[in-house]
């Protein structure tokens, strides 16, 4: 099959078991959100998909091949990943940052082709930062900085993009802004998105499919387009919730019971 697939995935970090046997296939073309309590292993699962954390047992395949057997550059043209807090060197400009997304396409000495420049232009335009491309990244607002990083991932021109809590450190309007952008990019370019999110309602609103994790195991996985049910959330968080109807979208809004 195409896409990412974990089977019998176990991961230990510093001798402690973090993931206990995960089987999960990510189909191409959708937006998937992974939610769960702190320490449930959701970030570790994403980082294992990104080939940063090495499985202790089982494995992850990309297009049917073991992720760890694929040549690094080939993998980097297929699979993008944005960590939760990537380091931004002091003084780097937006365009220079986004250009770094071209690394797996560039030649040995870093020479850029016309196609590279065009991809960078497109990526910057897609996230709406064209007017800011010569600004210093460290002087942008949090929301704009996140857009610049998403543009880097877009310039990489992968067909799968993994996002680790892309809304951390952002205030509510900017959280929505980033998730709208992610969904729009998915609809326009067909890029497959898998993201770890903290906020249940945002996950419910902006993901086609929600995966719940608890204690290093999958608790539930909705079908694409299926609404979240209250009992699913209750299995994750030990709290009683209501699922309300969103006024305009066919999605659930989860609120705690009083």
């Amino acid at each position: 099959m195409t896409g990412l697939e974990a089977s019998g995935l176990r991961v230990e970090l510093a001798g402690r078991a973090v993931l206990h046997g995960i089987d999960l296939a990510i189909a191409d073309g959708g937006v998937t959100a992974i939610i769960g309590p702190n320490g449930c292993g959701k970030s570790t699962l994403l980082r294992t998909f990104a080939r940063i954390v090495r499985p202790t047992e089982g494995g992850v395949t990309l297009d049917g091949r073991d992720l760890w057997d694929i040549d690094a550059r080939t993998r980097a043209r297929r699979l993008g990943f944005l960590p939760q807090a990537p380091q931004t060197p002091e003084g780097i400009r937006v365009r220079a940052l986004v250009t770094r997304g071209r690394t797996p396409h560039q030649g040995r000495f870093g020479l850029l082709s016309k196609a590279d420049h065009a991809a960078v232009d497109r990526a910057i335009e897609r996230v709406g930062l064209t007017a800011f491309e010569h600004r210093r990244v460290d002087r942008l607002s949090g929301g704009q900085r996140q857009r610049a990083w998403i543009a880097l991932a877009l310039a990489q021109e992968t067909s799968i993009l993994l996002l680790d809590e892309p809304t951390t450190y952002l205030d509510p309007p900017h959280q929505v802004d980033v998730l709208r952008l992610v969904r729009r990019l998915n609809r326009e370019t067909g890029i497959t998105v898998v993201m770890v999110l903290h906020d249940i309602t945002l996950a419910s609103l902006y993901a086609d499919r929600v995966i719940g994790m608890r204690d290093g195991r999958l608790a539930f996985a909705t079908e694409p387009g299926e609404r979240l049910a209250p009992d699913q959330i209750e299995t994750l968080f030990d709290m009683q919730v209501h699922a309300l109807d969103h006024p305009t979208a066919d999605r659930s809004i989860i609120v705690p019971r009083d």
Binding site: A50, A76, L79, P104, Q156
Partner: peptide, 12 residues
């Protein structure tokens, strides 16, 4: 400079 996670993601 962006950290190992980003470097690995970029195929390095």
């Amino acid at each position: 400079e962006h950290g190992d996670d980003v470097a690995i993601t970029l195929g390095l």
